[in-house]
Simulated scan of single mutants.
Amino acid sequence: MPEALFSLIAATGLLLGSPGPAPLALAASGATFGVRKSTGFLIGILLGLCIAIVGATAGVAALLSAWPEAHFIVQVGGALYIGYIAIKIATAPVLNPGQSAETRVPSLLDGFIFNLLNPKAYAAFFAIFSQFLLPIEGHGPSYLVTGLVCLLVAALVDFLWLCLGGSLRPLFHKPLPARVIRVSFALLMVAAVATVLLR
């Protein structure tokens, strides 16, 4: 059991912590708005991830295999919404040290919809549940505990991405570095989505 748990944690950390749409969006939000103001966005992303976990365990893979056009529609919808968040981050104005950007901060709802439509999250959980399911007696408990471990690892990894972005925040009071970093994060988010769509 400890070996299976370690493998699950490592796989989840690598799959969900690699630079994809959600980690890059969190880093960009942390850098643009700060860690504290981006907490709602983080919580929304984790709530959306819960739906992805439930969706993966409930057999969304089978549904999408039966109706491939549904898979494409979900991917395109997710890509468009992630593009919207990328534009929101890339075009945020440069702030003076005391200025507030409260109205432009991605919200809890933004985070929830973002990860709800994030194809990478579903793909990651299909892989995790097919390869790293914890060997616990009973089908239900095995999926439940595996899902909870994944959620805890995701919360830690996503918080670290948010803090990484937050550490860049001082640069966001200087127009040129602020614009370069925001646009870079936005382009990386779009590239991560394009990679998923083109596979």
Rank of each mutant, 00 (worst) to 15 (best):
Y122H: 04
L49T: 13
T146H: 01
Q75K: 09
G83K: 03
A192W: 03
K88Q: 15
V183S: 13
L144I: 07
A191K: 13
A192P: 11
L151K: 02
A4E: 02
V196N: 05
K37G: 05
V149T: 06
G78R: 02
I181T: 13
F6S: 10
A52M: 05
I45K: 07
L26K: 06
A123V: 12
V193L: 04
I113R: 02
S142V: 00
K37T: 10
V180M: 15
L164F: 14
L198F: 11
A155D: 10
M1Q: 07
P23K: 09
P141T: 06
P106I: 04
L187M: 15
S38W: 07
P93W: 05
P119G: 07
G166Y: 07
F185P: 04
A123F: 06
L198N: 05
G165P: 13
Y143E: 05
V35H: 11
G83D: 05
C163M: 14
V193E: 05
K120Q: 09
L5V: 01
A194F: 05
G77R: 04
I181P: 04
L24S: 07
A22C: 13
P175F: 08
S65G: 13
A127Y: 07
G55C: 08
A194K: 08
I9K: 03
F114G: 01
L15S: 07
G147K: 00
L187R: 12
G166S: 14
A127F: 10
G140N: 07
I128T: 02
G20C: 08
E3C: 01
V153C: 04
V94W: 03
P2T: 04
L64A: 06
T91P: 00
G78D: 04
E137M: 02
T57Y: 03
P141S: 11
G98K: 10
A79E: 05
V145Y: 01
F159A: 14
A61G: 13
Y143H: 09
R182N: 12
P21H: 07
V190C: 10
G98P: 03
R199Y: 05
S107C: 13
I82C: 02
A52T: 08
S18F: 11
S184C: 15
F172P: 00
L197E: 12
L197Y: 10
A4P: 00
A90C: 12
L171Q: 11
S130F: 06
G147I: 00
I136R: 01
A194G: 11
L197M: 13
G83T: 05
H71F: 09
L152K: 04
L46H: 11
L64H: 03
L133G: 00
A155T: 15
G98F: 02
D158K: 08
L117H: 06
K37W: 14
S65K: 13
V183A: 14
I128A: 00
F159W: 12
P23Q: 09
P177L: 11
L47Y: 11
L164S: 14
V60A: 11
L49P: 00
L64N: 02
